[in-house]
């Protein structure tokens, strides 16, 4: 029922974009903005992959690593959750070169956003693992499974279902924080909008289109995550029933 409403909202947004671009005043901006949107989607996808990777590593390290590794992952999580994403972006882009490390703006964007969302994700993963019922752990021990087997076969598959909704929120968060990369000279959707706004002063069409495009991207992510959730909770006694 939610999926249907979200799909209707997405269809409405896309229709509105199409209708607006029939107007010459709006059509002018479409090619440039679409170019920016492609970069936004690219950064989102790569950032999401990095975030999931970092979150899994950090969560497992914090739960099962030896003490120094546990400290390391806690430090990573607290630093990236505790400072703002923009400061992290600027630090990697402006400060790192002072130490002789030169990174491409695109790499900085993916790195900063991926690490930032990954730190939040680590807590999500940790919470999901911890919330797997106690009996499941005990049964795996009783079946003489090694720790790796237990995690891979029993715990992670069940934790996965519990993780999906909070990850959905984090991915939306990621989509929205990609707008920050415009401030380190990457030509994403926001950057294009600012550029066009400054050169043509047609503020209303530019920013209206940009808002609608972000909405369309976010809604697509939300719908995707809901579908995944539906698929993952199939055959389980817990989780949302579709």
């Amino acid at each position: 029922m939610w999926i249907r409403m979200l799909t209707a909202m997405l269809a409405g947004t896309l229709l509105l974009i199409a209708l607006l671009s029939a107007n010459a005043e709006y059509r002018l901006f479409m090619p440039g903005l679409l170019e920016g949107a492609v970069l936004t989607v690219e950064i989102t996808l790569l950032g999401a992959v990095l975030a999931v990777f970092m979150a899994l590593i950090a969560a497992l390290a914090k739960l099962y690593g030896p003490l120094p590794i546990r400290w390391l992952s806690t430090t990573y999580i607290e630093i990236f959750r505790g400072t703002s994403a923009l400061v992290q972006l600027f630090w990697l882009y402006f400060v790192l070169p002072q130490f002789g490390v030169f990174l491409d703006a695109f790499v900085v964007a993916v790195l900063a956003l991926g690490l930032n969302i990954g730190a939040y994700g680590a807590e999500v993963v940790r919470g999901a693992i911890v919330s797997v019922a106690r009996g499941q752990w005990e049964a795996s021990i009783a079946l003489n499974m090694s720790k790796a087997q237990m995690l891979r076969r029993i715990i992670l598959p069940q934790a996965f279902t519990a993780m999906i909704p909070p990850w959905g929120n984090l991915f939306i968060e990621l989509v929205k924080s990609t707008s920050l990369v415009s401030l380190i000279t990457l030509a994403d959707l926001t950057f294009k909008a600012q550029q066009m706004n400054q050169s043509t002063l047609k503020t209303v069409p530019v920013f209206t289109l940009v808002l609608l495009m972000y909405l369309a991207i976010s809604l697509t992510v939300t719908i995707g995550m809901r579908l995944l959730e539906q698929r993952a909770s199939r055959g389980l006694t817990r989780g949302r029933v579709a």
Binding site: S179, L180, T190, N197, T203, F207, L219
Partner: peptide, 22 residues
């Protein structure tokens, strides 16, 4: 609420600062 939550804050800041004067 859904609209506000799924668009970036940066764009909303620009919207209030650049579009409202129009």
């Amino acid at each position: 609420v859904e609209l506000i939550r799924s668009t970036p804050l940066l764009i909303q800041i620009f919207f209030l600062y650049f579009v409202l004067p129009k």
